[in-house]
Write a protein that binds this DNA or RNA. Structure first.
Lengths: 232, 232
DNA sequence: AGGAAACGCGAGCGATCACTCGTGTTTGTC
DNA sequence: GACAAACACGAGTGATCGCTCGCGTTTCCT
């Protein structure tokens, strides 16, 4: 043993050239497009290779099988996502009023999903292989945990089961609204949908938190009175 | 022309015996199980036939292709669903206070989806053929329209765009919560999740409707103070 | 009874897909 | 320049899937 200087990593420490790294990102980008358009199972490896303008043989030089493509893509997306929204849950945001807190948490998540629609396509389908589902469950659990901590911070005396239920429901509501946001065309209509989603979360969580401004006329972001301007 | 007395129907007026009708429902039930377990694309026709304890040839005597199985299943489910919740939107329910109105609308929908989990599996997947997607869009549009009429009834002076946005958002929130309800184990936990979902919708819609009881202590159904009982 | 038609079967056909392999090309190192 | 290794290719392979076809069985009608 100890024949190679690099024996600390995987059993296959394949040396990659710069060209190879470029091919990998190129293939992952192509896979993202095909997954997004047709879903995981309907996406053929030949179609991914064609989208990347390479041969099937080249694809299989960098990925052992189709699942590995989705797993690697999922891992990179999760890394980006944790990085993008990680700062949203910093402790200093706990001091913010609820509307601003919602902005800080919701906006990065929506922006990420708008920029990477393949993420939902991979995480959401019931057709994905088990490995992706595990990744998704882990990410989901970590997000829920952050929301739960946030809620528990405002309700230290509540039973943990209640906090979990509120966190789960808030996140489920967000996911439902997220689909609506992504379905809306980019522009003012999407912005209005985002504002409406924040309204839902605000009205749901405000009585729970019980300290914010229950002002019916202080919308979160742009669009005063976006929601059904009640005529007096 | 006019050779057969029955030329008013389809070009293929295949006469079915009672045995055949039984086989069809049996095959559709088997298809529902397989679709629910593996999704549409991953479900093979041979697997459906095996689940129904018939041969592939028998399956294709009643359905021209795999898509037709899903379409027929979808149509029967939609018929059941419209029948089940149709009474929820009767005009007399417009007079109900918001909590009771929510019960009348939400409960039948949740009960249907709990009894027929294959419905969401078929409607929700992005892998389904175009025919199913069209059916889903039609049902979705009709449901949204009913919600929109409900909202417009309370807000006759609001811009239509606002009513549509509120109806869309309320329905999206319901769908998100529905997944959470189905993920919860049957029993008190599921009931609590249902109550929580109604809380979300109540708090969102109550200021919109602007006439209901914004009482923080009048839960919709069972479970007084289910939500994070705030200690005074 | 007896004929027609619906029912039922399962081996097999063509197409497609994930994946391989033998061969040729480019890149890094001495 | 020479050698090795990474890179690139694309026709081909085995497996699977949607679906067919020929033939035997059951049911209905007269």
């Amino acid at each position: 043993m100890s024949e190679k200087p690099e024996m600390s990593e995987d059993p296959k420490p394949r040396r990659r050239q710069a060209r190879g790294e470029r091919r990998i990102t190129q293939l992952l980008q192509a896979a993202a497009n095909v997954f997004c358009a047709n879903g995981y199972t309907a996406a053929s490896t030949n179609a991914i290779a064609r989208e990347a303008h390479v041969s099937p043989g080249t694809l299989y030089q960098y990925f052992p099988n189709k699942e590995a493509i989705a797993v690697e893509l999922g891992e990179r997306l999760m890394y980006e996502m944790r990085e993008a929204h990680g700062q949203a849950f910093t402790p200093e945001n706990l001091a913010l009023p609820l509307p601003e807190l919602l902005d800080a948490v919701v906006d990065p998540l929506i922006a990420f999903n708008c920029a990477n629609p393949v993420f939902l396509a991979l995480m959401h389908g019931s057709e994905v292989p088990g490995k992706i589902a595990e990744e998704h469950d882990a990410l989901h659990a970590s997000l829920i945990e952050r929301v739960r901590l946030l809620i528990a911070h405002y309700l230290p005396d509540s039973p943990p089961a209640d906090c979990v239920r509120v966190a789960d429901m808030a996140f489920a509501v967000f996911k439902g609204g997220l689909h609506l946001v992504l379905a809306a065309p980019e522009g003012p209509e999407r912005d209005a949908t985002i504002a409406e989603l924040k309204q839902v979360l605000l009205r749901y969580l405000d009585p729970v938190i019980g300290q914010g401004t229950l002002a019916a006329g202080t919308p979160a972001i742009a669009g005063g009175g976006v929601t059904t301007s009640r005529t007096p």
